[in-house]
Design a protein around this nucleic acid. Structure first.
Lengths: 336, 336
DNA sequence: AAAATTTGCGCAAATGTTTGTAATCATGTT
DNA sequence: AACATGATTACAAACATTTGCGCAAATTTT
C-alpha cells in the first residue's frame, strides 16, 4: 500500500540509466535526449513519483512557502486578503502558511520565529495592535527573508508595503458627511501605533480644515479594537454636551460595536447619530441598518498585490538588493 | 549580514569536536557529557544556530506540518475552527498550512495534491459542496498521510471524523419551534452530498414524527449554498399556498439570505416567518433582527478536537494501524 | 581525413542532519 | 600489569536531489 518513497533512484534503476540523467530529464535539461526524457517521464508517471521537497530544499535552499501573519482570520477584511494572496501564490507553485497574532505582540513574534526556523521564502505581515517595535521583523531581514507589510504597515519608509489610500479615503468620508449638512463629526479611531490610524486622522483633519470646520479634541477618540473599549469610547462621545451627529469609525467592526453601544443608551443609529466606516465588509450587506457609508478597500486585490510584490522580491533576491516598494490601492466610498 | 547557514558543522569546528557529538548534545542525548553539552549550547546560542528543517526532514521524513482544506475562511464557523486547530497544533511545534476549496471539487483536489507533494504529516478536511467521490482522499491514505474529516464528513464509517451532533440539534431546533405553537415548519437544507445535510433532515423528520406532525414534501428544500439558489428556494417556499410559519436553515448564512429574500417579497422575517439556523456565528450578534434561535456548534472546540485526534494518529502511526475514530461534539440551541 | 564542436550521459561531490557502530579514555577489578 | 567496564566521543553511512566536470560518440567544420 504505502507507495511513498519513490525516488529518482528507482526511476534510474528501472531504466538502467544514471540518477543524474533522471534528474536532468525531469527538469527538461537541454543536454538530455528526447527519447530518454520521454522514457523518464513515462516511468515517473507510472511509478507515481513525487519529488521529495526536503531534498530539493536541502540543495536549493528554497521552500516554496510563504508565511502570512495577520491579526485575525475572522475579520473578513483579512480572510479576503488571504484569498487574494493564496490565489497568486499557489498559481506560482508556492504554498501559504498562515498564523494569527490575535493582535498580540508575543504571538506575532512567535509566528515570525517559526517562519524563520521553517525557512519560508518570504513573509507577508499585518502588524498587531500592540506592535510598536520591529525586532522580529528585523530578524527576518537578517536571515535574508523578504518581507512585505500589508495594510497595517510601519511608518518606516524603507520597507515594502501594500496599503490603501487611507488619508484620501478618510478625507472623502468626512467630506461626504459634511456635504450632507452634518458638521459635528467625531472619529472613533484605532490604536495610534498603527499608521493606518494616523492616516485616518490626517484625512479627517484635512477634510475639516478644507471645509473650515473646527477641530474638536473631544471628538477624537481611539479604541484598542476590543468590544469593551469601543463601547467605553462611544459612551464618552455620547456623553458630550455637544453630542456629535456622526462618527467616522476605524472599521466596520468598530462601527457595529459603536452602534450597539448607541442602542444600549437609547440612541438610534443612523437617525440620531450617523456612522461611516472602513472596509465595507460583506457582513454589512446582511444588516437591516448598516453604517451610512463604508470605504471599500478591495482586500482581495490588496492581497494579490502583496503576493505579487513578494514573489517579485523573492525572484530578484539573489541578483541585487532592491529598493523597498510601496503599493497604494485606491479606495471607494460606498453609500449604503 | 546574512547570518543564515550556521550549521552544526560550524559549532563542531568552533569546539574542535565531532559533528555527531554536536547533534547528540543538542538533542540532549544521555551519552554526551554534561560539560560538552553546555559548551555546545553556549556556542549554538552565540552563533545563532537554527537547525535546518530540510536536513531534518530528509532524515526523519517528517515535516511537522499539517494541511487544512476548508471550503471557506470567510465563514466564521471555519475561521473559528482554524483558530482551534492552530492553537493545538502550534503548541506541539507543528505548523498549519491552509487551503480553501471555495466549495469546488477541483480546488479541493489541487489542495490535497499539493499537501502530498509537500509531504505534510497529516490533513484535516471539510469537504466541498461538490464532493461526492473521495479519490484524492484515498490518495492521501495511499501515501500513509493521516486524515481527519471535520464537520462536513463523508458517510463512510471507516474514517476519522469530528462532527457536531447534528441529528440531535435539528431535533431540538424543530421541537423548539413546535413548542412555540409553530407547526408548519419548512427546512432549507444544504446539498445532499453533505452528510450534515442528511443529518439535519433526519433530526427534522424525527422531531416531526415524535410530535405527530405531517411531513410535507414541499417544505423540504435544499440549496447549493449560493445566494442565488437560496433566494430561489426561499421564494418557492413563500409561494406555497400553505406558506410555512418557520424555516430551519442549513446555517446562519443561508438564514440571512433567506431573510433578505423575505424582505424583498414584503414578508417580515421573525414576524411573518420565523427562522432557526445552525452555527450561531458572532455575526448574528450584530443583527437587529437575528434568527429566532441558532444551534451553537462550538467551532473552536471542534477544531481543537480535530487537531488533537490528528496529532494522536500521527504519533501512533508507526506503531500500529489505528481503527478510525469518531468524535461527536454536543451542540446547544441558543435563543436570541 | 583530421580537427573542432556538439550531443548525450555518467561520476561524484555537496547540501545538513541523524544514528549505528567503532574507537578512545579513564577508572576500577583481577 | 593486564583487563574488563562504562562513559564519552568520533567515524561514516544514509536520506533524495542537484550540478560541475568529464568522457565518449556523433556531428560538423576545416
Amino acid at each position: 500500500m504505502q507507495k511513498s518513497q519513490v525516488t529518482i533512484k528507482d526511476i534510474a534503476q528501472e531504466l538502467g540509466i544514471a540518477i543524474s540523467t533522471v534528474s536532468r530529464a525531469l527538469q527538461n535539461h537541454p543536454r538530455i535526449g528526447l527519447k530518454t526524457k520521454e522514457q523518464v517521464f513515462e516511468v515517473a508517471k507510472r511509478l507515481n513519483y513525487v519529488p521529495n521537497p526536503a531534498a530539493i530544499l536541502l540543495r536549493k535552499n528554497k521552500t516554496y512557502t510563504v508565511g502570512v501573519v495577520f491579526p485575525h482570520l475572522q475579520e473578513e477584511f483579512f480572510s479576503q486578503a488571504i484569498t487574494g494572496i493564496e490565489d497568486v501564490i499557489s498559481a506560482k507553485g508556492y504554498n501559504v502558511v498562515i498564523s494569527q497574532s490575535r493582535d498580540k505582540l508575543e504571538r506575532e513574534n512567535r509566528a515570525i520565529k517559526s517562519f524563520i526556523s521553517s525557512r519560508v521564502d518570504g513573509v507577508i505581515a499585518s502588524i498587531s495592535a500592540e506592535t510598536t517595535q520591529y525586532y522580529s521583523f528585523k530578524e527576518l531581514e537578517n536571515y535574508g527573508i523578504p518581507l512585505v507589510f500589508f495594510d497595517r504597515v510601519p511608518k518606516d519608509v524603507a520597507v515594502n508595503k501594500v496599503r490603501g489610500n487611507i488619508v484620501e479615503a478618510a478625507f472623502e468620508a468626512t467630506s461626504f458627511l459634511a456635504k450632507k449638512g452634518i458638521t459635528k463629526i467625531a472619529i472613533l479611531n484605532g490604536p495610534s501605533n498603527l499608521e493606518i490610524s494616523n492616516e485616518r486622522l490626517e484625512g479627517y483633519w484635512k477634510a475639516l480644515k478644507s471645509l473650515n470646520l473646527p477641530i474638536i479634541q473631544q471628538y477624537i477618540k481611539s479604541t484598542d479594537l476590543t468590544k469593551e473599549d469601543t463601547f467605553k469610547k462611544m459612551e464618552e462621545l455620547m456623553a458630550l454636551s455637544e453630542r456629535p451627529q456622526a462618527v467616522l469609525c476605524f472599521n466596520d467592526y468598530v462601527a457595529l460595536f459603536a452602534m450597539q453601544s448607541c442602542r444600549q443608551k437609547g440612541i438610534v443609529p443612523n437617525t440620531d447619530i450617523h456612522f461611516v466606516s472602513f472596509a465595507n465588509l460583506p457582513i454589512t450587506a446582511y444588516l437591516d441598518n448598516p453604517p451610512m457609508a463604508s470605504v471599500e478597500q478591495f482586500a482581495y486585490k490588496m492581497g494579490e498585490q502583496a503576493a505579487l510584490l513578494l514573489l517579485k522580491i523573492i525572484d530578484a533576491k539573489q541578483y541585487k538588493t532592491l529598493i523597498p516598494e510601496e503599493i497604494i490601492i485606491d479606495t471607494e466610498l460606498v453609500i449604503h
